[in-house]
C-alpha cells in the first residue's frame, strides 16, 4: 500500500507583526515550517505503516526552495521518501494552482491508495486544496476526518466531524482524505531520526516536469483577486475599569445595562 501525504509550508503566524498603522501585516523574512494539520495527516500515515506491512509513505509538497530544508522534519517523523515540486510560481499560486500541481504530481507518482491532506492550512484555512485535488483526479473525498481506519485491502473508513453528528464514510481506494487535529498527536522525531532524515530520498520536480507552467499556475491565473488584507479596524471601547473591585463591578453592570445586553 502506498500513502501520499500532502504537506504545505506555512509562515510562523506567531511572528506576524504589523506596520505602525496597526493593520498592515509584515510577512517578509518570517520563518516557514510544515503546517500543523498536515503533521496530523503524516502521523496517521506513519501509524498505518506501523500497523500494516508493506506500506510506503510519501511526503509530497509544492512550494519554494525552502522546502528542501523543512521537508526533513517529515522524513524524520517517518515518511519513507519525499517528492517536492519547486518553482517560484508556486510561492504566489492560489489554491487552484497548488491543487493542479499536486494532482499532476500524484498522477506522476502513479499508483497510490490514499492521499492524505490537512483539512485546512494554519495560515489561510480555506480548505480548498483537498476538494480540488479530488475533483481534478475524479476521486471521492472524505473531508474533516477525525478517526481513520485503513484496512490491508485498501478499504478506507473515515469518521467525519460535522456540526451535530459524526458520520462514518467508507470507500475503496484510491480516495482523497482530509484530516482534523483531533485525529492524533503528531510525534516529535528523536534526534537519531533527524540525523538519518538527510539520507532519505528526496525527488525534486519542476512545474515543467509536470507539464505545468506560467499559463496554468501563477499569479495571473489567480481566480480570486485580493483587494486588501488588513487587520480589522479596532472598534471596541477598550475601557479598563478602575477603582476598587466593588466599584468596578457596579460601573460594569451600569454600562452593560445601558447597552441593553443584560436584562
Amino acid at each position: 500500500m502506498r500513502i501520499v501525504v500532502c504537506l504545505k509550508e506555512v509562515i510562523d503566524l506567531a511572528q506576524v507583526r504589523f506596520k505602525t498603522d496597526g493593520r498592515t501585516p509584515v510577512l517578509d523574512g518570517l520563518p516557514v515550517r510544515l503546517g500543523a494539520f498536515e503533521k496530523n495527516a503524516l502521523e496517521e500515515a506513519i501509524r498505518i505503516k506501523e500497523r500494516l506491512t508493506e506500506v510506503e509513505v510519501i511526503a509530497l509538497s509544492a512550494g519554494s526552495g525552502r522546502l528542501k530544508e523543512s521537508i526533513k522534519e517529515a522524513l524524520a517523523m517517518g515518511a519513507d521518501r519525499a517528492v517536492l515540486v519547486l518553482d517560484p510560481l508556486l510561492e504566489i499560486a492560489d489554491s487552484a494552482g497548488v491543487a493542479r500541481t499536486l494532482a499532476a504530481a500524484l498522477e506522476r507518482i502513479g499508483s497510490w491508495d490514499v492521499c492524505l491532506l490537512g483539512e485546512g492550512s494554519d495560515d489561510e484555512y480555506t480548505g480548498q486544496t483537498p476538494s480540488r485535488v479530488a475533483a481534478l483526479l475524479g476521486l471521492p473525498q472524505i473531508t474533516n476526518v477525525r478517526e481513520l481506519d485503513i484496512a490491508g485491502d485498501g478499504r478506507v473508513r473515515g469518521t467525519r466531524g460535522l456540526e451535530a453528528e459524526l458520520e462514518v464514510v467508507a470507500c475503496d481506494s484510491p480516495v482523497v482524505v482530509s484530516v482534523t487535529s483531533e485525529l492524533n498527536t503528531p510525534r516529535l522525531p528523536p534526534l537519531t531520526a533527524i540525523l538519518k532524515a538527510g539520507r532519505k530520498p528526496v525527488e525534486v520536480w519542476t512545474l515543467a516536469d509536470l507539464g505545468l507552467g506560467p499559463g496554468t499556475v501563477g499569479p495571473r491565473e489567480a481566480q480570486v483577486e485580493v483587494l486588501s488584507n488588513l487587520a480589522p479596524a479596532g472598534s471596541r471601547k477598550n475601557q479598563i475599569l478602575d477603582g476598587d473591585l466593588e466599584a468596578q463591578i457596579e460601573e460594569l453592570l451600569r454600562s452593560l445595562e445601558r447597552e441593553g445586553v443584560i436584562s
Binding site: 492560489d94 487552484a96 491543487a99 480555506t126 480548505g127 483537498p130 456540526e163
Partner: peptide
C-alpha cells in the same frame, strides 16, 4: 459554509473551473 458546505464549494468550483471563497 457548514462543514459539508466548506468542502463541497471547492469541489464544485474545480468542476466548473471557477474561483471560490470557502468561508
Amino acid at each position: 459554509a457548514t462543514r459539508r458546505g466548506r468542502s463541497l464549494a471547492p469541489r464544485l468550483a474545480q468542476m466548473l473551473e471557477a474561483g471560490c471563497v470557502s468561508e
